[in-house]
Design a protein around this nucleic acid. Structure first.
Lengths: 252, 252
DNA sequence: GAGCCCATTTGATATAAAGCAATTAGCGCA
DNA sequence: TGCGCTAATTGCTTTATATCAAATGGGCTC
């Protein structure tokens, strides 16, 4: 085996592990008018492209003033809440192609910290530029609102309310389906991938202990739903996993 | 003991059990400009005031087109998700003075059903009117966005993420503190009140069994945190309850 | 390539909550 | 006021997950 960190397949377009612009969650903001003919791109002027961030580094910190929205173009980020003094509380993971920081808009402060799970690249869209341009391009603000609402609903409200009532196996099943689906949405393989986070991080996010989580990985492996080898996951039977998740139809 | 249903104290202003307009969550939308001198009130023209709704009746149904935002002026409403075919999933409670229906804006459909827990009154603010007026009064839209973000953060994101990791006692403690705080915000007594919902509803919302919940009420009662007699609650030691909730400082 | 460190897995036991059954209490109605 | 229905409580048993402890494994450094 080589020393390559990931065995992910490349996305539909662009370089391996890097998401292409038109698969990126920030695309509707970077390119608010992309209909035939018109070409207003904020990307050229405002977006700071491909900034590197090393594993463990903070992209922004909880409570810091809200200045920019980001998109992960490669790698992965965890969102951490430290308000509970003693231990960190992981409130979400941001995958390659997904946006983060949007939720800072309401109180004008980031509600959580963003920490790189592995060496990553991000694009930065300063919020000031966004507002300035929004006056000329109303659709921009609309795109932003849509993004916010979608995120609030999909990522937080539904998922968290479900979590509160699901048992350990259902939580892990739902989590894996969720990751797989999100990868698919960004043009990555939904069937096979490397988990960017540790077992501890998953356990933290799902409100379980790492021992319980480990046993569950073993159980899902043995039941034939997935193949697990360390962080490498292969989805063998998504339908079975969906049943195990206790979710109605399509996991958010 | 008399046959009066509730022993709630009256709010700061207005009739007993009815919230006054300026304690109402819809106030910033009904009266977007209430600064000295100006008086633009949507209330006079558009708001349908004090519509009665009987216990068990639907105010709106999950999936129905989004037409209006409501405020509960007296009584209480439960928000129910029926997407899980077999059983209902209670995703929240709306108390007197609070708004509901706002979250229908994104997909233009109500994401859950609203069912009266007891005979109640609501005000209705048609969304069409809101949009029309918003063109003339930009601050209106801003108030609306603020309301949405606040709700998404307070009511759902934080609360639900906490729930997923809290044990039964912590959940119930947090729930009671949350109710108490919300009553206080609307000018009702935070120390003593009637629960508008059944034990089954609370258990459903908190992801617990009613037997577990019942034991916990007994436990909190015996520990001196609260006094319970059926649906009547008296908060005896909020600080103790806060500790039991495992929440950092002020429960949302 | 060997050794070390830390993440992960596995095993054994304790504990919290669910599940089931029976009793009690509250409330509407005759 | 008493009856009857349903909600709520309580007791007992089972199950799922946490907890504690030990063993294994993978990746990194030298």
């Amino acid at each position: 085996m080589t020393t390559r960190i990931t065995t992910d397949r490349p996305p539909r377009r662009g370089q391996a592990n890097h998401v292409a612009c038109d698969d990126c969650g920030l695309f509707p903001l970077c390119n608010p008018i992309n209909i035939s003919g018109h070409e207003l791109s904020m990307a050229e002027e405002f977006v700071e492209r491909r900034q590197p961030i090393r594993a463990g580094e903070y992209l922004f910190s909880e409570g810091a003033p809200f200045t920019a929205i980001y998109a992960v173009t490669s790698g992965a980020i965890k969102l951490v809440n430290n308000s509970d003094e003693d231990e960190e509380l992981i409130v979400g993971f941001v995958l390659s192609g997904e946006a983060l920081g949007q939720t800072g808009i309401y109180p004008q402060r980031y509600p959580c910290s963003a920490i790189a799970l592995e060496d990553s690249f991000v694009c930065e869209l300063p919020f000031g530029s966004l507002l300035e341009t929004a006056n000329q391009v109303p659709v921009l603000l609309n795109n932003f609102q849509t993004m916010l609402h979608k995120e609030n609903f999909d990522l937080y409200r539904q998922f968290a309310m479900l979590m509160a009532r699901k048992n350990a196996e259902q939580r892990l099943s739902a989590f894996l389906l969720n990751l797989s689906l999100r990868r698919q949405e960004r043009g990555f393989s939904a069937e096979e991938f490397q988990l960017p986070m540790s077992r501890d991080d998953i356990a933290n996010f799902l409100g379980l202990r790492k021992e319980t989580l480990s046993r569950l990985f073993t159980k899902l492996h043995q039941s034939g739903s997935i193949a697990v080898r360390g962080k490498h996951i292969r989805m063998l039977n998504a339908e079975q996993l969906r049943k195990a998740s206790g979710l109605p139809s399509s996991a958010s």
